[in-house]
Simulated assay, not measured.
Amino acid sequence: MKLSPMTKSGLKSLSLFAAAMAFATPALAFPVTVDNCGTPLTFEAAPERMVVQDINMSEMAFALGLQDRMVGVSGISGWYKTSEEFERKRGDIPEIAPKYPTLENLVAADPDLFFAGWYYGMKPGGDVTPDTLAPHGIKTLILTESCIHLDKARPAASLDLLYGDLLRLGTIFGKEVEAQALVDGWKARMAELAERIGDNRDMKVFLYDSGEDKPFTAGRFAMPTAMIEAAGGRNVTADMETSWGTTSWEAVAAADPQFIILLDYQDGGGADKLRAFLEAHPVMSQTEAVKNARYLPLRYEELTPGPANIEGIERLARAMHPEAF
């Protein structure tokens, strides 16, 4: 079949356009440098063999379609029950350790990147740190929320913890456009939510993670503080100068929370066990939230930095402010 001069000209233009687009592809934008708890981390090329710690960080990677770059996950089956959707996205990616991986676990998987955080797979001075992994050719991308354990000058938690980490992943893997589109969509949902809630933002909220002698909960630097604020409330333990930590039942009861989030680990009784404990507790049973049975169970991945934060905030806002929906 002969092509007309116009068709030939059009094909030539398309070929030139395709060549230009190929030249402009993000894969050719390397090296890239991202902030890593205040230290620059440079990549000469996109990682090819990543291990990801925890369900929340795994969901960040899944959101960008990075499964083909993942050679392992860790810290999931030892603590959580996963959804069918999570397992579908995970596919045949193996779990190298049910809780915290050892240095040997990671070296055996032969990754070039470990995406984890302080007390999300790593402990300061522990067996697995960026310094112990570096001699094995493994770079470490640190979850920003966890940087507070090394840098006490960090700002209070905000949704930028989620947005920034997803954008960093996009930069590292040459998926800036996809990452920005996700973040823009999340911001639009949060803006719509803020408009619904309006100025009704004074509800006192307590997050009960675990613990009986002392409650383990979220402080100023933990993601739930930002989530509670986005949902139209204020965290009664936001004055704790930590991310996650313990306080006293007397302090929580004195704050008289009006609403309680129960971290539902879905094992050992989960949220039902936490609720029963609060209702039998001598001081917590007298708080407004417990007396009025105002609770919402949220899963671990909804309360730690990850894509599930957005739906978690929306669920929390509906439960706290049903009149706005």
Rank of each mutant, 00 (worst) to 15 (best):
K2G: 12
A29F: 05
D35V: 03
P40D: 12
D54Q: 04
S58W: 00
M60R: 06
F62G: 00
A63K: 13
L64G: 02
G65T: 02
L66R: 06
R69C: 04
G72R: 00
S74L: 04
G75Q: 00
I76C: 02
S77D: 03
G78L: 09
Y80G: 01
Y80C: 09
E85I: 00
E87P: 01
K89S: 01
R90S: 01
G91M: 01
D92G: 04
P101F: 08
N105H: 12
L106I: 08
A109T: 07
A109C: 06
D110F: 03
P111S: 02
P111Q: 03
F115C: 05
Y120F: 10
K123C: 05
T132G: 00
T140S: 12
L141N: 03
T144N: 08
E145L: 12
H149D: 15
L150A: 12
L150R: 15
A153I: 05
R154S: 07
A156V: 08
A157F: 10
Y163S: 02
G164L: 03
G164I: 02
T171Y: 07
I172D: 00
F173H: 04
F173A: 07
V177L: 11
A179D: 07
Q180N: 08
L182F: 08
G185R: 01
M190L: 15
M190K: 11
D199A: 07
N200D: 11
R201K: 15
D202R: 10
D202S: 14
M203V: 14
V205K: 06
F206H: 14
A226N: 04
A226V: 04
G233R: 14
R234H: 13
N235Q: 12
G245S: 12
T246L: 08
A251M: 15
A254L: 15
Q258S: 12
F259G: 13
L262S: 04
G269V: 02
D272F: 02
A276D: 15
E279N: 11
P282T: 11
S285R: 05
E288C: 15
V290M: 14
E323H: 01
